[in-house]
Each structure stands twice: as C-alpha cells, then as structure tokens.
Design a protein around this nucleic acid. Structure first.
Lengths: 247, 247
DNA sequence: CAGTGGTCTAGACCACTGA
DNA sequence: CAGTGGTCTAGACCACTGA
C-alpha cells in the first residue's frame, strides 16, 4: 500500500515547548478557529513580539514555518495574511513494497520472471538517456503479499548506474531497495492511472484480462542521469493509495 | 488532471542570494554530487561557520531547512548525517477541476444530474458526523472538458457546514470552489483506486460498463466537523495523476 | 514616512551524546 | 569532558510597500 501524510506535529516531549513553537501553535489554533478569514491581515511580527514577550527572530521563525506549510502568505513591506487554501495538498510517499508488506505483519514473496540484458528500443533508450540499441537491464517481478499477487513490476535499468543489478537476488532484495542504495538522492516523475490488465498481466496477477488495475509508472533520475523506469501494475481490488492532509 | 510537485527552489531574483541560502545550496550540491554516502557524517554547524564566515544561526538555518526537506538527519549531541532516502516523496495537490481545465485553455462544462436533500443512510450519517436519518445534501455532477465527460462527481454535504449549498449554480461554480469558500482550512483524507465503471457511471461518462476508472474518494473536515464526502470517477483512458519529486 | 518582512550577528544557555 | 545540535536574545541593516 502506498501511504501518505504530512508531518506537522513536533514530537511530544516532557520538556516545555519552545517559545517559537508556542507562538506558532497559538497562531495556528486561531487560524483553525476561523479567527481570520482567508486573505485577512494577521498580526505582524512586532505585535507577536509584544504579545508573547519574545524576540523578533522567534516570532519570525513561527510565521516563516507557517508560511512554509502554506498556512499564511507573507509579503515584504505589507504584512502576513491568512492563506486562501485553494487546493488541498498532501505529501505522497511512494515506499518500498517489501517494507510496506512487512510493516503490516504480512509475508512478502517475489517471483522473478525475467532478469536479463536486452537491447533498448529507441523510445526506451531515449527515456533512459542512453544510445540507440545499447544494452539495458530488464526485470519482471511479481510481488506477493501472503501469497496473493499484489504487484507486477516491469522495470528497465540503466546499466551505467547499477552495473551489478542483474547479480542481485531479487527474492531477497527488491529492485527499489537495491537501487536506492546504489543511486541515492534522486529525482522522480510518476504517473498514476487506471487501466485494464493486459493478457500477460492478468496471467501473472491471477486476475481476469481486462480487470481494472492501478498502474504506477515511475522514472527516476540520480545526479542528472536517468536510472530506471518502472511500471507497477496492481489489481484494483487489492491495492489503493491512501493519504491525508492536515494543516 | 491532478498536478503534483514540490516547491524547492527560491524565486530567482537579481539580488544576491542570502548567506543562509548559499550555505544551504552548497551543502545540497555536495549531497547531490555524492560527497556523502547516505548515513555519513556531514559538516557540523561549527565547521560551516568557519568555512563560510557566517554566524551559527545562519548555518543552523541552512541545515534545519535541509532537515525539513528530508535531505539530512540531525541528532542533538551527535551530528548531521546524510539522509537515507528510503522513500520517494512528493507533494500531491488535488486541485479544483474547473481551474485545471481552464488552465489548459480548455472549456469546462458541468452537467447537474442530482441536487437535492436526502435522508442519510446510517453509514453516511456516521461518516459525516450527523445523526441517523438526518438530512444531507446530495449532488451528482458530470464535468466535461471540451464536451468530453471527464469526471463523475457524487457528493454528500453536511448541511450544517454549508446551508446554502443547494442554492449554488453548479453550472457556474464547482462544489469544490464553493465549499473552500464556506469552510476554509480543512483536513482531508483521500484514497485513490482503480475500479470498474458501474452501469450508472458508464452511462454518465459515455463509456462501456466495466471500463477501468480512476476513482478518488475524498472526505474533508473543517474545524473538526466533517464537511463533505465526494467520490470522483474518471475514465482511466482520459485521466491520470502526474507528479514529480525533486530534492 | 512609518510599518512591514528578510536576514544576519555575536553571544548565550541548554540537553544530549559518546569517549 | 568536548563536541553536537536546539533555541533564544537584542540589536542591526536592508528592501519593500503604501499612505
């Protein structure tokens, strides 16, 4: 399962909250209570300084963090305003499937159908930033949760980024885990869509052809070099992405 | 279309970058260049102070912001470490469909099929936090992009939060727009799944029954009070959610 | 011009960690 | 114990805005 959420709250500790945190929470509570309509002028740093007896840097940090969280808009020379909240945002985290399954207390099992070198098609070579007809690594793995097929992972890897990719034992390590080690700090583009299972996918996932599937396509780039493109297909009846948004 | 992304870069301005921003960018570049393996010890604040000739507060802000972005882990009494990047995150923004369509330069048109009061079922009453058998507002609207049906929006609204809901002209204002005005600053839970179009959905969307659809279910809460539950069904062939992640 | 936010400094006290 | 990060302060200079 893909989990999402945003980390807003500080750790609850026995120590007294820091002054900047108190100011921030105060403003946040008032905001949540409707004290200021969206777009309304809020207290200036100077007012918070007077009200809480803190230094300006402390008031500034409180408001700056609220700005980073999208709760207020600040304009130099003008003031701080309650944000409009035109949109609902959430941090979406795409995690390693193995960890997800294990965290649920379930068994994960990967079945490797393909793990080999191939010549890249032109389209693929372009998306992976390699030359036409060059070699790519290709794996096709079906992941099971408690022996139920949950994800069919069709992945291409740029050999320059992970030369040892095909030597990995994918019944013990997922491609995601391995690639995160080899190529840390990456960018990713993804898309989420619904589409019908192809004949092959339906066979691998043990569902009927044409059944609705949730498909995640992800392309990752590490230090400017494309690393991998993966297409992850899940039976619509078994997999959903959950998330929440909380200011 | 749902768009996603994260705002990492500062506005490019003609003014010189602030010292904290320089330090931050320097560390970020080194991190991206692989200077420190995940988990490796990074420069302390004191070292950055010496290296850049800035005050500790300035170095602290740079590292603190990198920590908030998930790029480094800091442990009091120990040091600053390159983050493991176990997961790939992205800000997912669920926007108002009308704005999305208009931004693409296309025409939006909404067809209202249902807009009435109903008695809530028990399950619905519970999810909306109202008493059993109480009245709810129900709308069923199909949104078109350039006259192609794109979304079937089945929505229930807590009358206490939006008494004037049924008076809105939904051919001119979307429920999302209206509710954001009436009930600002809210929490939301959502799920994204793939499922087959029901008979009614297929009729409303002009697709075959059983076709894969991308379904978004969203429940929103304003100031602790449940406001609305919406189920938005999109033909899988027309709609996908795109996003990117960039540290 | 007064008021606003953006940022920096030099110093401070503290809690925490590991040798 | 020395080194680390967490935080605060009192003051400063600046850019920007709108009256």
């Amino acid at each position: 399962m893909v989990s999402a959420g945003n980390s807003s709250g500080r750790l609850a500790s026995n120590r007294a909250a820091a002054p900047y945190a108190k100011v921030k929470q105060f403003v946040k509570d008032q905001l949540a209570g409707g004290r200021w309509a969206p777009g309304a002028l809020m207290p200036s740093e100077a007012e918070l300084v007077a009200q809480f007896g803190v230094s300006r840097m402390t008031a500034n940090r409180a408001l700056r963090e609220l700005q980073n969280e999208g709760l207020v808009d600040r304009v130099q020379g003008v003031g701080t305003f309650a944000a409009q909240l035109h949109s609902v945002s959430s941090t979406l985290t795409i995690r390693d499937l193995h960890s997800e399954i294990v965290e649920r207390g379930h068994r994960h099992h990967a079945q490797v159908h393909i793990a080999r070198e191939e010549r890249a098609t032109d389209a693929l070579a372009q998306r992976l930033g390699i030359s036409d007809g060059a070699t790519v690594f290709h794996t096709l793995i079906v992941h099971h949760e408690n022996d139920v097929p949950l994800q069919c992972e069709d992945r291409y890897v740029n050999p320059a980024c992970a030369p040892g990719y095909l030597d990995v034992d994918f019944s013990r390590t997922t491609p995601t885990q391995y690639l995160l080690e080899v190529a840390p700090l990456w960018e990713a583009q993804y898309s989420i869509e619904a589409s019908a299972a192809t004949a092959e996918e339906s066979r691998l996932l043990g569902i009927d052809a044409g059944e609705p599937c949730l498909v995640l396509v992800r392309r990752t780039v590490s230090r400017g070099v494309p690393v991998t493109i993966a297409r992850m297909v899940h039976p619509g009846s078994l997999y959903q992405i959950d998330g929440k948004f909380k200011p």
